[in-house]
Design a protein around this nucleic acid. Structure first.
Length: 561
RNA sequence: UGGGGUGUCGCCAAGUGGUAAGGCACAAGAUUUUGAUUCUUGCAUUCGUAGGUUCAAAUCCUGCCACCCCAGCCA
């Protein structure tokens, strides 16, 4: 443990207060946390809260964080998922001090502890079926009934447990149960199952074991075995804490036992999380894969252009919490995404919906102009763009019948072209169908950006690309996958809503846009602000002939019509 | 109706006997060659509720109300 001045630490929640107390009073010597994903799906944004709490809490106290794959159920787990966690973690910028596969590292030790507990008369082999166990557990208001196998002699239990391991029982025929109290008001304490017989091929161990420990038994002992001092988990495990402590007390029996402490689970309005549903969306082809940019998975939001910093700042802003689940509006997350991108995204001019403009009084071949890469970052430099006789502006930046306080271009009016000149619109040219074909404008020569001597004031500045300085790109605009009004999609589905009832119909719109040539230097995952429009991120689908950009998030729009 | 938890602004959230921080959202204004950013201002006479103790209560006591979690050989 690094030297940390405990008095200089400002605790931000009750657990940090407790840690300071523990450290000062020798109840614990250091802070070791563990991050225990079960490799049974892809991580999503709400999981970042757990990562962040595990790693940041340890960091704050100069401690360590171990990554432990909690792979005790071979029927649900897969190496693909384990790999993806590792990559997500790297991306987030957290480096575990140890990487452990619980299955490989601890199964043998845990098995031995189980045998010792049998010897101590704390566990017994039970032949009740799952259904019978359920029936005899009692109810919330009534005590359970003790298993007929509960008081079998110790030696026989040991022999039977060894038989379980040796594969002498069929799946589901025998369990090892903790001998606690069938009348306990906490249901978790009514002789919980410690081991079950389960013949399934483990993704790391193959068929080495045919019995697997339950989470409630394995987790506390894994924590203890590797020296974890604070085992931080979400609030639904609060009820399991007495059991966690019971297994530590009866299975571990050594100093500095780990402490389980809980935080609130995070959910975000309008976002569908829940492995089951996400899996279904992938399998049904509703999204292109786990990394679809509309998906709340980490690989998805990463591809969308969200940053690790934004995610971490967001979850930190929500706090530790003390209820089961805290729900925050999506805008709370968006704030941090915009905030980070505003600082790091390179500005570029891209016209998403082009309208041709001819500068009738411009006779030169064109000229260079300069665009700041990031006005909020003096070190970001600038890049060159061009102004010329034919340019394209955004259709919505010209209005025949402008709403009040419209600052952009109107017939007979002026606007500033970002980084170039002020232009005046003289004439609207229509095509055969009566649609606007293009605009005829004049530029005001003494208004060039940086050298404006005209004294002309114009309220609006719009972006543009010139004809000899643009290339076509593909832009993917996203809407939220789930309809706006469905704030709790998982609940809606659980209550019987159909997927199509909650799905936003046009959540992906692909279009062609005109981008300044500067964007040709972009690389996959590079983040840009398309000036006045929003933040975009280059997608991995890009090819040299077709650059693809994902819309990360729009800029805030303060214009009120 | 057993046990465990929680109730402070629309949403998060500090506060633990001395007179309600902060963030998001929202609103108004200023600056701006991005209607962005930035800045400034506003936004709970009141802390689920009813009583009580006290000079003083969101904080202590009592009753009540509401919501959430637990009966997997899931984690």
């Amino acid at each position: 443990m690094k030297n940390i001045d405990l008095d200089s630490i400002i605790p931000e929640n009750d657990v940090e207060k407790e840690i300071i107390y523990d450290l000062k009073n020798g109840i614990n010597k250091e802070v070791i946390t563990r991050c225990p994903p079960e490799p049974s799906g892809y991580w999503h944004i709400a999981h970042v809260k757990a990562w962040t709490i595990d790693f940041e809490t340890a960091k704050k106290f100069g401690g360590k964080t171990y990554l432990r794959m909690d792979d005790t159920n071979p029927t649900k787990e897969d190496g693909e998922y384990a790999e993806s966690y590792l990559e997500d973690l790297r991306w987030l910028g957290y480096t575990p001090d140890k990487l452990i596969y619980a299955s490989e590292e601890y199964f043998e030790d845990i098995y031995k502890i189980a045998e010792q507990m049998i010897l101590d008369g704390k566990a017994y082999v039970c032949f009740l079926s799952a259904e019978e166990v359920s029936k005899t557990r009692g109810t919330l208001t009534q005590p359970g009934i003790e298993s007929p196998y509960r008081n079998r002699p110790i030696e026989e239990n040991l022999r039977l447990f060894r038989d379980m391991r040796a594969g002498k029982f069929e799946d589901g025929k025998a369990t090892l149960r903790a001998k606690i109290d069938m009348a306990h008001p906490n249901m978790n304490m009514r002789d919980p199952v410690m081991y079950r017989v389960m013949r399934a091929t483990h993704y790391r161990l193959g068929d080495k074991w045919c019995i697997y420990p339950m989470y409630d038994f394995a987790h506390p002992l894994e924590d203890a075995l590797e020296g974890v001092t604070y085992s931080l988990c979400s609030m639904e495990f609060h009820e399991h804490r007495p059991l966690y402590e019971w297994f530590i007390e009866n299975g571990w029996k050594k100093p500095y036992p780990p402490k389980q402490r809980e935080f609130s689970r995070l959910t975000i309005e309008n976002v569908l999380i829940g492995k089951r549903y996400l899996k279904q969306f992938v399998n049904d082809g509703i999204v292109s894969g786990w990394d679809d940019p509309r998906f709340p998975t980490l690989v998805g939001v990463r591809r969308r252009g969200y940053t690790a910093k934004a995610l971490k700042d967001f979850v930190k802003s929500v706090g530790w919490g003390n209820v089961l689940e805290v729900t925050v509006p999506y805008s709370a997350l968006e704030y941090y995404v915009r905030s980070d991108l505003n600082n790091i995204a390179t500005r570029a001019m891209v016209v998403l919906d082009p309208l041709k403009v001819v500068i009738t009084n411009y006779e030169k071949d064109g000229e260079e102009i300069e665009i700041e890469n990031n006005p909020n970052d003096p070190n970001a430099g600038s890049h060159k763009a061009k102004f010329g006789k034919v340019i394209y502006i955004e259709k919505e930046d010209f209005a025949l019948n402008p709403p009040p306080k419209y600052n952009r271009l109107v017939e007979g009016g002026v606007v500033r072209l970002k980084g170039a000149y002020i232009i005046k619109c003289n004439k609207v040219i229509y095509d055969k169908n009566g649609e606007i074909d293009h605009l005829e404008c004049e530029y005001l020569p003494d208004t060039k950006s940086g050298n404006d001597t005209s004294g002309i004031k114009c309220k609006g500045t719009i972006h543009f690309v010139s004809e000899d300085n643009f290339f076509k790109i593909t832009v993917r605009e996203f809407k939220n996958l789930i309809k706006r009004e469905v704030t709790n999609p998982a609940k809606a589905l659980a209550e019987g809503a159909k997927v199509e009832d909650i799905l936003e119909p046009d959540s992906l719109i692909e279009k062609t846009a005109y981008a300044e040539n500067f964007l040709k230097s972009a690389k996959v995952e590079d983040k840009f602000q398309f000036i006045r429009k929003g933040y975009y991120c280059m997608d991995k689908d890009s090819t040299p002939d077709n650059y693809v950009f994902n819309s990360t998030i729009s800029l805030k729009d303060g214009f009120k019509k």
